[in-house]
């Protein structure tokens, strides 16, 4: 009749059996691929946010410049409604005299 190992011996054997150096190794390829995919999607999202922010900033800058730029100078060439081609200094002066009533 073979002797039963003691409880302590069994516990020791179990510790040995589940020691990390004696355990089989696993690749975990699918899980690690999933992590990579998540990292990639994270970068894509971050990239999209950065690009989106850059576009918004650029649009803001352009809009500001358009809003604050001086209006375009009137065309110097004579038009049909105003044969004189805009107000001359003399005519402006005349109008000022009229307003003053002198």
């Amino acid at each position: 009749m073979p002797s039963k190992p003691t409880q302590d011996e069994v516990v020791r054997l179990l510790d040995g059996a589940y020691d990390s150096s004696r355990m089989p190794s696993y690749t975990g390829s699918e899980f690690l691929a999933e992590v990579q995919a998540k990292a990639l999607s994270g970068w894509l999202i971050r990239g999209a946010v950065v690009v989106g922010a850059a576009i918004l900033i650029a649009l803001g800058v352009i809009g500001y410049k358009v809003a604050t730029s001086p209006p375009a100078l009137p065309d110097e060439s004579p038009t049909l409604g105003d044969p004189g081609g805009g107000q001359s200094p003399t005519r402006v002066g005349d109008r000022a005299l009229m307003l003053n009533g002198d």
């Binding site: 073979p2 002797s3 039963k4 190992p5 003691t6 409880q7 069994v10 516990v11 054997l13």
Partner: peptide, 10 residues
């Protein structure tokens, strides 16, 4: 543990 003891004995 008791079962494993018996198993190992066998």
């Amino acid at each position: 543990i008791e079962r494993l003891r018996e198993h190992l004995a066998e």
